[in-house]
Design a protein around this nucleic acid. Sequence first.
DNA 1: ACCTGAACACCGTTCAAGT
DNA 2: ACCTGAACACCGTTCAAGT
Lengths: 230, 230
Amino acid sequence: MADDSKRTRTRATHSLEAVIAEAVALLDESGEQALTFRALAARLGGGPASVYWYVSSKDELLDRASDHVLADVLAATEDLQGSDPIDDARTVAVTLFDTIIVRPWLAAYFMRDAEQQPNALRLFDRLGRQVMRLGLTAHDTFDAVSAIIGFVIGTAADLSQQPPQTVRDGSLSLDQHLQDAVARWRALDPHEFPFIHFILDEFATHDDATQFRAGLDLLLDGIRQRAEAG
Amino acid sequence: MADDSKRTRTRATHSLEAVIAEAVALLDESGEQALTFRALAARLGGGPASVYWYVSSKDELLDRASDHVLADVLAATEDLQGSDPIDDARTVAVTLFDTIIVRPWLAAYFMRDAEQQPNALRLFDRLGRQVMRLGLTAHDTFDAVSAIIGFVIGTAADLSQQPPQTVRDGSLSLDQHLQDAVARWRALDPHEFPFIHFILDEFATHDDATQFRAGLDLLLDGIRQRAEAG
DNA sequence: ACCTGAACACCGTTCAAGT
DNA sequence: ACCTGAACACCGTTCAAGT
C-alpha cells in the first residue's frame, strides 16, 4: 500500500494545451492586461518561470492563444458549399468577425506568424476556396481574399476597442457616452463638418454589427462585379 | 548687470506641443516599445513625472501622438473637389494608408477618442464629404464611409506588423523570410489547401501597397454601384 | 503653475538549482 | 524533461516637496 493519500503534490505539471487554454480563459475573463505570466502561472498552480518551458515569450503566448480561438471559427464554417460562393464567403467573414468582436485582443495577433498559427492558415484557405469558385484569376482572387480579411480585422479591431475610462469605471453608461458624443457633434459648425451633421442621426441610432455587414456587402458587391465583368 | 551667463538652468520646462512632438519623434525613430516616460523625459531634459503635468496617462499620450500625425494627412488632402467623388475618396484613403503603414503604432490609436483627437474627426469629415457627393442616403453614406475607414485601418495594421524575430535580429532578410514561407506553403497538401496553392505564385511576387489599392478599388466599386442603383 | 526626487507596485525574462 | 526560487532590469504611476 502506497501512501498516496498522504503525499502532497509539491510540483505542478502542465502541458502546452493547458497553458494556452488557461491563457485564453484569462484573456476572455479579464482582458489583455490581465494576462501576465504571474497570473497565468497562479491559475496553473506553479511559478511564472514554468510557463517558459512551453512558450519562449509573451508574444508567442498571444500568437498561440489567438490561433487557439480560431479553432471555433473553423468548426463553425465546415462544409460550406452553398449555391452562391459569395454567400459562403460572407458566412466565413461574419463568423470571424463575431469571434473577434468579443475578443479585442485577437485582432492584433491574427495571422502574424503562419508557422505558429496553423488555424489562421486554414481559415485563410477556407475563405479563399469560396472566392475561388467565382472563377477570377489567381491574382484577382488573392486580392479579393486579402481585402475581405483586411476589412474584417480592421472593422472588428475598431469596434472592439476598449471603452473610454468614464465608461469603464461606471461613471457613465455606454449609452450615455454615445449621447454625449452626439451632443458634442451637434454643436460643431455645420459648415466645417457637413458630413458629421449629415450622418448625425444615423450615428446616434446605428448598430455596429449591422454596419459591419453593410460594409462587407459593399465589398462583396465589388468582388462579384469583378467576377461578372471578367 | 545680471549674472545670467553664470547661472545654470536647473529646471526643465516644456509644453504640451513639445511633449507630443517628442513622443512622435521617439515613436518614429525607435518604435512603440521605445516610448517610455523615462526615455521621453530624458529627451525633454527632465524627470518622468514632469510629463504627467501634460498628459494623465500613457494612453492619452498615444491618443494625442496619433492625432498629431494626422495633421499631415489633413494637409495633404486639402481642396479635394475633382470631377469624380470616388477618386477624391480614394485619395484620402490612400494618403491615410501611406501614413499608417510607416507607423505601426498608429492603427491601434486611430479615432479612439473623438474628444482628444480633433484631427481624426476632421479626417472623418473630409472623407465623408467626398462620399456625400454620390447622393446616397445618410444611412448608406455613413455605412460607406465607415467601411472605407475600417478597410484602410485594418489593412494597414495587418501590413505594418512587426517583422518576425528572425528578421529583426538580422539572421534572416525580409526577402529570405518570404521565400521560406513560400517554400513551406508549397509543401502543404494541395487537397487540404487548394487556395494557398492557387495563389502561391501571386503571393511570392505581390506588393502590399499595390494589393491595398486593388482591395480599396473593389470596395469603391461596390459603393459606386450602390450609388448608381439608388 | 510646473517640475524634482524618490518611491511603490508591478512587469517580462533569466538562470542556477532542484527533482 | 520539467519545475522552483529568486533575482535582474525594467515599467507606469503617485506624491510630497520644492521653486
